Simulated assay, not measured.
Amino acid sequence: MYSSPPKQPSSLYPQVDLSNPDATSSSPSSSSSLYPSLDMKDLAENLFPDDATALHTHQDSAEQLLLKVPGAIVHLIERETSIELACGDLCIVSLLQGDNVVAVFARLGDDIQWPLAKDEPVVKLDASHYFFTLRVPSNGSFEDGKDSNQTEDVLNYGLTIAAKGQEGLLKELDRILETYSCFSVQQVKGIENWNLVDARNVAPEELNRKEKRDLIVGSSMAYWTTLAPNVEDYSGSIAKAIASGSGYVVKGILWCGDVTVDRLKWGNEFLSKRIKSGSTSEISPEALRRMKRFVS
């Protein structure tokens, strides 16, 4: 009895009938492909597209002005004599990469700018005085390819603002500083009744008059020089907190206490000498080095 061969299982792949050899030849008119056809001529012609935007895959960077506050003075704070660095409009500027904020800077004119960051403290002492702390690598010596002095310089700089009529702008400044830096508000005790020009009662346009400007700058210099030890102690505590690996500045670090009577007396004498006509102040080599690092 004849039995038919067992039925072959169905295949997952298409079968090719080899009885007609021409069926295996590929031509656009006789067969269809699962893949799109590729013309090498088109590929060569489109290798360098004419559209210039296609060549720029990165996003362009741009600056955005967040705030401008007229009547600002910046001093590098030193124990012997604080150094005036710039006077003019304080601008807070953000650097954008597309829609993303890459960095935020404080800037005075074309010469002075410094970054704002969450691990860099900014302290407001009253309505017209702020101080900033900036850590920069120090110049260590190199031996065997290694830095033998891996330390940082801590630069402290004081911002004085002619605040009269600018209360709204200063509120906005506080908001920006709180957003982009380690911002806190402290109180200086012991200096309230000192014979200083109160920048809260000075309008920005008054800085355009040389006599008035010199008086305000001299008073501001005396203010920051008198506070220098307290500022240094505060920023030293900040530096230690960062070095301990906390990751960011703890806002619980408090202002370093009252200004001493001796320092107030010294500051009053400094101010008296500073406002005399033709008076000059000696700047230490260390202060000059810090100043160069600050403005570089």
Rank of each mutant, 00 (worst) to 15 (best):
Pro121Thr: 08
Asp51Ala: 11
Gly88Asp: 14
Cys182Trp: 09
Ala163Cys: 08
Gln166Glu: 13
Ser94Leu: 01
Thr57Phe: 09
Asp126Glu: 07
Leu170Tyr: 13
Pro49Phe: 11
Asp144Leu: 13
Asp51His: 01
Val122Thr: 14
Ser141Ala: 12
Ala72Thr: 07
Asn100Glu: 13
Ser94Ala: 13
Leu116Ser: 04
Leu65Lys: 06
Asp51Glu: 12
His56Leu: 12
Gln64Cys: 06
Gln150Trp: 13
Asp147Phe: 05
Ser148Thr: 15
Gly71Val: 02
Ala117Arg: 09
Glu143Cys: 07
Ser141Trp: 11
Leu96Ile: 00
Ala86Leu: 03
Ile77Asp: 03
Glu172Ala: 10
Ala106Val: 10
Ala54Asn: 10
Gln166Ser: 11
Asp111Met: 03
Val136Leu: 15
His129Lys: 04
Leu96Ala: 02
Val101Asp: 02
Glu172Met: 10
Lys118Ile: 08
Lys68Leu: 10
Asp89Cys: 09
Asp126His: 11
Glu143Lys: 11
Ser148His: 11
Ala86Gly: 09
Glu152Gln: 04
Leu55Met: 05
Leu169Gly: 03
Leu55Ile: 03
Ile112His: 10
Ser138Cys: 08
Leu108Phe: 00
Leu134Tyr: 02
Thr179Val: 10
Ser82Asp: 05
Ile83Lys: 04
Leu66Glu: 15
Ala162Leu: 06
Ser148Glu: 15
Phe132Met: 01
Leu55His: 15
Gly168Arg: 08
Thr160His: 08
